[in-house]
Write a protein that binds this DNA or RNA. Structure first.
Lengths: 339, 339
DNA sequence: TTGTATGCGTTATCAT
DNA sequence: ATGATAACGCATACAA
């Protein structure tokens, strides 16, 4: 009893022949019209299909109907736990609605963003979740022309009116400043990666400047790429190694910054708390370092689901005006902001 | 000057008409036969294509040639940084070879594994990277029957002879025990997640037992799911809160365990180093907690690339006997194993 | 309830 | 060097 060693999978035609019915009937069986088939026929199709190991070919299906069943996602940095958590939310939502997710990591490289976008377009994705650094104008235009729904994640793009989901950056900064002031810190250093290509970074930065005086705080800002650790060390030393009128704290614009800054502070031998430390983004280890690092947690899974919701809505009604969904952060107070 | 608001993308036919050539020529232009076209024709096709914004439809291409251009990857736990790092390596290699990667997270759920595998099959992926907990036999058989190349990641599957890439678990355990012994620890507690569905866990466990006596160490083992933190606390207390003849250390079977154990030790107020702590898998924060946590780092990117290499080879020669590639870990010694 | 015929966008085969 | 035409596997309008 040798199984037929086949080179390729069974097709709808083979099943039809085997069951003695037409291709159409088999197609209906695997489509959403199973109910329109007689019980007898359903039996025979089911039997043949399972014996032949038939699986509908989604590629062929997509070609005919224009329905690839695919949602595309561009992630600026897959090694950022925040991105992964959001992606997890998007994926769950995709599954729940019968879509599959195709994720492309771009390593914050605009060239890769363009390439991957073209790729996703060539697979005719039915929706797009974008978390990018550059502005892939042309490639994007090609997609939007087809009315492919689009949702921006965490970062918005100039001159692109699209749905957007992310953190309420103003509230995040407000909450951070309020917490730091309440804990008695009077001089702040805000450290961010270069904000040029990430709107959320810009927004946080602006808000920091805006609210600073209002809260009666002194502050300064430092923007630099995290791979330049000497520069980071210098910036932190400049801030901490001089006489000050009030307790000092460092505020980190995101999880990557928190990691880099924590390393520097640790190397310097600073005591967390005495030197305040707070970060946007909650990470696995924030409770473990020293007295614990105070953070503002983002509701990552919810953000992911919201992104998918946006897509689905727009799939139904492509004319709905662009909407922005902004989630509030949750303060997780720990020892790094306790003096 | 209104751009032609088109509902769908330009097709090869439209380009052909616009350029006054045949479909075949356009197909050749975008395939690998550009050289066979006259310079003049190349010019005209290029012009028309770019003006119409034409992109070959990979779905249609896949239908005809059976080449989806897709590699599928099943990841047991996307929130595990180790998995993400490996995935990053796989993705890079995919890109380098003109493939796209379709990643499915299964949350360690065999049901999801089956579903996602069926899905990947329906997209006719040309290769498969598997990191799974269950044993999706039927679905897998369907794929392997088509000679879809397959490579197992970190975990092998019973009665499935396939390529496999991962850590050299024996060397990892040996290195850990040797280091701990050299640092003067004499009684060990090895903590692992349940090994039943992950061969690498089993292998590490066995090796631990095997080598224990040889190194003149006392040891015991504890296997439990990490979501049961009371049980973990109890196990650790049992080990640490009793008189001992020699310094004690906890060895963690992977990064997740290291995280959970570190939390418990911290809550108990143990001093790292005095109580030894060591883990397999290097994580961002291991250098930051207390005196630093000693780890064995896996060469994640290399593992990812090796997985893809396996696939590519097998795509060329499907008869090559199954091969296992095992990478050696790198010891990163820190304060948690310094008494 | 079931079947026939056509087309989706592309590549492969066979011509010229 | 270039083109006409037939598949690829499926869904759908239409017919019975």
């Amino acid at each position: 009893m040798t199984a037929p060693t086949r080179r390729s999978r069974a097709t709808i035609l083979e099943v039809a022949r085997d069951a003695g019915v037409s291709k159409t009937s088999v197609s209906r069986y695997f489509g959403d019209e199973r109910s329109r088939l007689s019980p007898d026929m359903q039996q025979r199709i089911a039997a043949s299909a399972s014996r032949l190991g038939y699986r509908p070919n989604r590629i062929a299906r997509g070609l005919k109907g224009g329905q690839s069943g695919l949602i595309g996602m561009l992630v600026a940095d897959i090694r950022n736990p925040f991105s992964v958590a959001v992606m997890h939310g998007v994926e769950q939502a995709c599954r729940a609605h019968g879509f599959s997710l195709m994720v492309c990591n771009t390593d914050n490289d605009p060239a890769q963003e363009r390439d991957h976008l073209a790729l996703l377009a060539s697979y005719r994705v039915e929706g797009l979740v974008l978390n990018v650094a550059g502005h892939p104008g042309e490639e994007l235009a090609a997609l939007t022309e087809r009315d492919t729904p689009l949702v921006l994640l965490d970062r918005s793009l100039d001159d692109l009116e699209a749905d957007m989901v992310g953190l309420d950056n103003d509230r995040a900064i407000d909450a951070a400043l309020e917490h730091l002031r309440a804990q008695g810190y009077g001089e702040l250093l805000y450290i961010s990666e270069p904000p040029e290509r990430a709107s959320s970074r810009q927004r946080r930065l602006e808000r920091f400047w805006t609210k600073l005086g209002a809260d009666g705080l002194e502050g300064e800002v430092c923007c630099l790429p995290l791979d330049d650790s000497p520069a980071l060390e210098r910036a932190i030393a400049d801030f901490l190694d001089r006489p000050a009128a009030a307790p000092r704290a460092v505020l980190c614009a995101n999880g990557n910054v928190t990691l880099a800054v924590t390393r520097v502070l640790q190397a310097r031998g600073d005591t967390l708390g005495t030197t305040g430390l707070m970060g946007i983004d909650e990470l696995d280890w924030c409770g473990l370092v020293g007295p614990g690092i105070t953070t503002l947690a983002q509701p990552t899974e919810a953000i992911g689901r919201a992104a998918m919701d946006s897509l689905l809505e727009r799939l139904t009604d492509s004319r709905r005006p662009p909407r922005q969904v902004r989630f509030s952060p949750t303060l997780i107070a720990r020892g790094s902001t306790r003096r």
